[in-house]
Design a protein around this nucleic acid. Structure first.
Lengths: 141, 141
DNA sequence: TTAATATCCTATGTTATTACTAGGGTTTAT
DNA sequence: ATAAACCCTAGTAATAACATAGGATATTAA
């Protein structure tokens, strides 16, 4: 019941792009350095985010990655589902047909509620919300 | 981000005990048969529930397992944490000191919120609630 | 045109965990 | 005597997590 590093690094990379969107395309090297992840590992995570339509890339010198849409239009739920797969705590929530008990199983209802609670938090938070929180945290006080 | 079978089987075993509490001690054999789990595997799960104080055992003929306390006093959160370990989606929620970023990391806050949402559902549901739901589902209609 | 820099692709390896199965022995109470 | 809890060790097959490594290809500033 843990998120993979893929999800964590990927989310942080997205946050990094949101925070530095004024700098133009962000090269992988910068992302990797700031997030403390190897370029080679991040290089495997990035395509997932790209296929999901969250980022676009600019090749060549001074190239890098850019958010594909407004940070306010990207929910954390979508990012993490792209990286992690389904967030249901058990498979039968997504595929009730697989489980012969699902129609008559009270635990199934609870697992569904857990899934709903996770959806509530991550579906209600956009990348922009996250970036705003980060700016708040980074403020001198 | 999935519950282990240990958690699922263990929760179902607890539910089984709650539903059959009028029958006296429930032998492992019956639990295993009704839940469709091998005795040998269930035998590895039961001690966890016992150590956590949820069930007691009666040895000898006609022995078996019994809830150690009122089903209304046992939260699903406690059962699943005993079986699964911490329900935090990332380690830094439990051990902020491990992560040098935790004080200044916005994602950390979101992970904490996710944990809170899970706690809300599972901490607000007792074994008795679950049993009641099950009785409702099993009713002829 | 070329050199620098970036993306893209494929493969490999390590480690850990999960989800069991297997087989035995001991203790306890009816 | 029997049925049951209890205890112990071991093995294993599959899967996933978490990377590392090396090179191929594309782009563009100079």
């Amino acid at each position: 019941m843990k998120f993979s590093t893929r999800s964590r690094y990927g989310t942080r990379a997205m946050l990094d792009l949101a925070l530095h969107s004024d700098l133009g395309p962000i090269p992988l090297k910068d992302l990797a350095r700031r997030q403390g992840v190897s370029m080679k590992y991040l290089e495997q995570i990035i395509p997932i985010l790209k296929k999901a339509g969250f980022i676009t890339s600019v090749r060549g010198i001074n190239g890098g990655y850019v958010l594909a849409k407004d940070a306010g239009k990207i929910r954390l739920l979508d990012i993490i589902e792209a990286l992690e797969g389904s967030l249901s705590p058990v498979d039968c929530v997504d595929m009730p047909k697989w489980c012969p008990r699902s129609k008559e199983c009270a635990t199934h209802e609870v697992w569904r509620d857990v899934r709903g609670a996770i959806d509530g938090v991550l579906g209600g938070t956009t990348l922009d919300d996250l970036a705003e929180r980060q700016r708040e945290l980074s403020k001198p006080h």
